[in-house]
Simulated scan of single mutants.
Amino acid sequence: MRDAFYLPDPEDPRRFLSTELTRGPWSPDAQHAGPPSALLGHAIERCEPRAGFQVGRVAVEILGPVPLEPLTVETRVARAGRSVELIQATLSSERGPVMTANAWRFKLADPELDLPETILPTGARPGPDHAPEPAPFPSTQAIGFHTGIEYRFVTGSFADAGPAICWIRLNYPIVAGTTPSPLERTLAAADSGNGVSAVLDWDRFLFINTDLTVTLHRQPVGEWVCLDAVTYPQPHGIGLAESVLFDEKGPLGRGTQTLLIGPR
C-alpha cells in the first residue's frame, strides 16, 4: 500500500502513478471514480491559478472504467473572463481519455457582499463524532478506496437500503507530497452518494454513475465532508443519486450522479 492515492511522475508534471488505494470495490483492475475525480480537481486548481477566484462547480463525465494504471491530466482555460472562467480537464490512460471535467471558476466579491443573514443557507447534520464505528465495507478487494477513507454513518449503512447520512474523510493525500484541498476532499467524497444511499440489491443490480456534478456555494472547512444522500431508481434503467453536501458548520452545496441501472 502507498501513502497516497497517486504518486507524481518526477519527469512529467502531468502524469500520475495510480496506487492500490484508488481501486474500486468490485474489480481489481479499475478505480473508484472518487480518486480520479479528485485528481481532476487537483489539476483544475493548478491551471493558471488566479488570486481571489474559487471553483464553484465541477462537472465530471466518466467515459469508461478508469484502469489502475498511470494517468495523464491535461487542463486549459477554455473561456477566460474578468469575473468567471471555464476550465476544461481531460484524464487519460494509455488507452485514451477516461474522464473529462468542466469547471467554472468565479471571482470572489471583495469586499464581501452585505447579504441578509436570513437568506443564507443554514442547518447542520450530527457530526462524525456522533456516528458509530462503521461495519466493514462490503468489498471483495482487500485494499482500495474503501481502505483509503474513513466513513461514519449517522443514518443508514451500506447494508441497509435507502437514504443515508454519511461523513467521509480521506486517510491519505490525493497526490503524494500535497495536502488535499477542500475541492479535492469534496469531489472524492461526493462520488459515493449512490453507494451510501443504494436502494437496490448489490448482488442483483448494477447502478453505475456516468457522471458527477458538484456545485459548491462555499468551500468546506475541516477534513470531513457529509453526504445526505438519496437514490431515485426507475424501471426504465435510468436513475439519479442526489447528495446535499455539508461540513460540520453547515451546508456546502449539492452533488448529483446520473445512474445506469441494470441486472448484474
Rank of each mutant, 00 (worst) to 15 (best):
Glu69Thr: 13
Ala51Gln: 14
Pro36Trp: 10
Gln54Tyr: 00
Glu48Met: 08
Gly41Gln: 08
Glu45Asn: 13
Arg57Cys: 02
Leu71Lys: 06
Ser37Tyr: 08
Ala59Gly: 09
Val77Trp: 08
Leu40Gly: 09
Thr72Pro: 00
Leu71Val: 12
Gly56Cys: 05
Glu74Gly: 00
Val66Thr: 15
Ile62Pro: 00
Pro67Gln: 06
Ala80Phe: 05
Ile44Asp: 02
Cys47Ile: 10
Pro67Phe: 07
His42Thr: 03
Thr72Tyr: 01
Ala38Asn: 02
Leu63Cys: 11
Val60Arg: 03
Arg46His: 14
Ile62Asn: 00
Thr72Val: 13
Phe53Gly: 00
Pro36Asn: 07
Ile44Phe: 04
Pro65Thr: 06
Gly64Phe: 13
Gly56Ile: 05
Leu68Asp: 06
Leu40Val: 11
Glu69Asn: 06
Pro67Lys: 01
Pro67Tyr: 12
Glu69Trp: 04
Val77Met: 02
Thr72Asn: 00
Pro67Ala: 09
Thr75Tyr: 11
Glu74Trp: 10
Glu45Arg: 11
Pro36Ser: 03
Val77Gly: 02
Leu63Trp: 09
Pro65Val: 09
Ala78Gly: 15
Thr75Arg: 03
His42Arg: 03
Leu71Met: 03
Ala80Thr: 02
Arg50Ala: 14
Val55Trp: 10
Glu61Ile: 00
Val73Phe: 12
Leu63Thr: 13
Leu39Cys: 05
Leu68Thr: 10
Arg50Ser: 06
Pro49Ser: 13
Pro65Phe: 10
Gln54Pro: 00
Leu71Trp: 11
Thr75Phe: 05
Val77Ile: 15
Glu48Cys: 10
Arg57Gly: 04
Cys47Pro: 08
Thr75His: 08
Arg79Pro: 00
Val77Pro: 02
Leu39Asn: 11
Gly41Ser: 09
Leu39Glu: 06
Ala78His: 14
Ala59Asp: 13
Phe53Ala: 02
Glu69Val: 04
Arg76Phe: 08
Leu71Thr: 01
Gly41Asp: 07
Gly56Glu: 09
Thr75Asn: 00
Ser37Asn: 04
Leu71Tyr: 07
His42Pro: 05
Thr72Ala: 11
Ala38Phe: 13
Val55Pro: 05
Val60Glu: 03
Arg46Gln: 13
Glu45Val: 09
Thr75Leu: 07
Thr72Trp: 06
Glu61Arg: 15
Val73Arg: 02
Glu48Phe: 06
